[in-house]
Simulated assay, not measured.
Amino acid sequence: MMSNLFSIFDPTTEISNLPLNWTSTIIGLMLIPTSIWLIPSRNSMTMSVLMNKMHQEMKTISSKGSINSGNTFILTSLFLMILANNFLGLFPYIFTSTSHLTLTLTLALPMWVSFMLFGWIKNTNHMFEHLVPQGTPTMLMPFMVIIETISNLIRPGTLAVRLTANMIAGHLLLTLLGNNGPSMSHTMLSILITAQILLLILEAAVAIIQSYVFAILSTLYSSEVN
């Protein structure tokens, strides 16, 4: 095991060289009872409302072409997947797969590449227009092309790092505070427990917000190529 500060996030649990920590990415599907899909319940109604809200949100900021191709449903499913994995990571002894660039880059990079290929092949003139914002002075046009090109190239990296960094930061803070518990007095321990509970609530909010941000930014990137 790694002996540094981030060793808790290192996927080292394995049997016969099979990394079992990564099974947390799909373990949520195994825990969902079949009745949630077969019999109408509060869980199924909540899930339906959530998906409809996300679909309408993405439909609002998407272009007409991306709606017809069903991109909003793909991105809504992506939102639910990231949200489930973020929440699973809040439970003790469950590996947080979204805190690793291995997963987040795997989600962000193929989407960005597909958006860029579609845009440059199908809407080449439109993509060139995006490199020079309207109203840019003639002298600044070469610099704007360079800046816009760099901003396009780093998009998958910023998507992946944003999600990973936010998930690691809260978990690391919870871990560092929790490790100081055995050496504290009873008064300080009660304060620490209260702080841990508040941080856990904050982490739950971060889990929702970061999955929403990932899905919405992906939707914005897809709308720019149409």
Rank of each mutant, 00 (worst) to 15 (best):
S3P: 05
S16F: 13
S16R: 13
W22S: 02
W22M: 02
I26V: 15
L29K: 05
M30E: 07
P33D: 02
P40Q: 11
N43H: 14
S44G: 12
M47Q: 13
V49M: 08
V49E: 03
M51P: 00
M58E: 06
K59A: 09
S62W: 01
S63E: 08
K64T: 12
N68I: 10
G70R: 03
T72R: 06
I74V: 14
L80C: 13
M81P: 00
N85E: 11
G89I: 02
L90K: 02
F95G: 01
T96M: 07
S99I: 00
S99D: 06
L105F: 13
A108F: 03
W112R: 00
F115C: 04
M116W: 09
F118G: 05
W120C: 08
K122H: 12
T124Y: 06
T124P: 00
N125S: 14
N125T: 13
G135W: 03
I146S: 01
I150H: 07
N152P: 00
I154S: 06
P156S: 06
G157Q: 02
T158H: 03
L163T: 04
L163H: 04
A165G: 03
A169H: 09
A169V: 08
L172G: 02
L177Q: 02
S183H: 12
M188T: 07
L192P: 00
T194F: 05
Q196L: 14
L199G: 03
L200G: 09
L200M: 11
L200V: 00
I201P: 00
I201F: 12
A205S: 05
I216Y: 08
S218Q: 03
T219C: 07
T219G: 01
Y221P: 00
V225G: 02
N226W: 10
